[in-house]
Amino acid sequence: TRVETATETAWISLVTALHLVLGLSAVLGLLLLRWQFPAHYRRLRHALW
């Protein structure tokens, strides 16, 4: 049971790290898009909202 718990903890930390990385890359990508294509971003936002 001790090994299982350790594996579970490792998986949880791995998944958390993955989610953090994905979230950060998504935010960075959005910022980059907004910085590179302001007109396109505004049009996209206008279409979405």
Score class of each variant (00 low, 15 high):
Thr7Met: 08
Leu22Met: 06
Val27Trp: 06
Gly23His: 01
Arg43Asn: 09
Val3Asn: 01
Leu24Phe: 09
Gln36Thr: 05
His19Tyr: 15
Trp11Leu: 11
Val15Arg: 12
Ala17Met: 08
Thr5His: 02
Arg45Pro: 02
Ser13Asp: 05
Ala6Ile: 03
Thr1Ser: 09
His46Tyr: 10
Gly23Phe: 11
Leu32Cys: 11
Gln36Glu: 04
Arg43Ile: 05
Thr7Ala: 12
Ala17Thr: 06
Leu14Met: 07
Gly29Ile: 12
Leu14Ile: 15
Phe37Tyr: 14
Leu33Trp: 15
His19Asp: 03
Leu22Cys: 11
Ser25Tyr: 02
Trp49Gly: 03
Ala39Thr: 14
His46Leu: 07
Leu18Arg: 04
His46Val: 08
Arg43Ala: 12
Leu20Phe: 07
Thr7Cys: 00
Gly29Ala: 12
Leu31Trp: 13
Leu32Glu: 00
Trp35Glu: 04
Pro38Trp: 08
Leu20Asp: 01
His46Cys: 09
Arg43Ser: 08
Ala10Ile: 13
Leu30Met: 09
Leu48Thr: 06
Leu22Ala: 11
Ala10Met: 13
Arg34Gly: 13
His46Asp: 06
Thr5Met: 03
Glu4Asn: 06
His46Pro: 03
Phe37Lys: 13
Trp35Val: 05
Arg2Leu: 10
Pro38Gly: 13
Leu14Arg: 09
Trp11Glu: 08
Arg45Met: 12
Gln36His: 06
Arg2Pro: 12
Arg45His: 05
Thr7Lys: 12
Arg34Ile: 13
Gly23Ala: 14
Leu44Cys: 04
Leu24Pro: 03
Val3Phe: 03
Thr16Ile: 15
Ser25Phe: 12
Trp11Gly: 15
Arg34Leu: 15
Gly29Met: 13
Leu18Lys: 05
Ser13Phe: 14
Leu33Pro: 00
Gly29Leu: 12
Gly23Asn: 01
Trp11Cys: 09
Ser13Asn: 11
Ala47Cys: 07
Trp49Leu: 04
Thr5Val: 03
Arg2Ser: 14
Val15Phe: 04
Leu22Thr: 06
Val21Ile: 14
Pro38Ala: 14
His19Gly: 15
Gly23Tyr: 02
His19Ile: 15
Thr7Val: 12
Trp35Leu: 05
Gly29Tyr: 01
Gly23Asp: 00
Gly23Ser: 07
Leu28Trp: 10
Glu8Ser: 11
Thr1Gly: 03
Trp49Met: 03
Trp35Met: 04
Arg45Ser: 07
Leu14Trp: 15
Leu14Asp: 03
Val21Leu: 09
Thr16Asp: 02
Arg2Lys: 10
Trp35Ala: 03
Gly29Lys: 01
Thr9Pro: 11
Tyr41Ser: 06
Leu30Val: 12
Leu44Ser: 02
Ala6Asp: 08
Trp11Gln: 07
Val15Met: 09
Val27Ser: 06
Leu24Gly: 13
Thr9Ala: 13
Ile12Cys: 09
Thr1Cys: 08
Ala39Asn: 14
Ala10Lys: 15
Leu31Asn: 01
Thr7Ile: 11
Glu8Trp: 06
Thr7Asn: 09
Thr16Val: 15
Leu31Arg: 01
Arg34Met: 15
Ala47Ser: 05
Ser25His: 04
Leu32Asn: 00
Thr16Cys: 10
Thr7Leu: 05
Thr16Trp: 09
Arg43Thr: 08
Glu4Phe: 06
His19Arg: 06
Ser25Lys: 03
Arg43Val: 06
Ala17Ser: 06
Gly29Arg: 00
Ala26Tyr: 02
Thr9His: 07
Ser13Cys: 11
Ile12Pro: 09
Trp49Ser: 11
Ala39His: 12
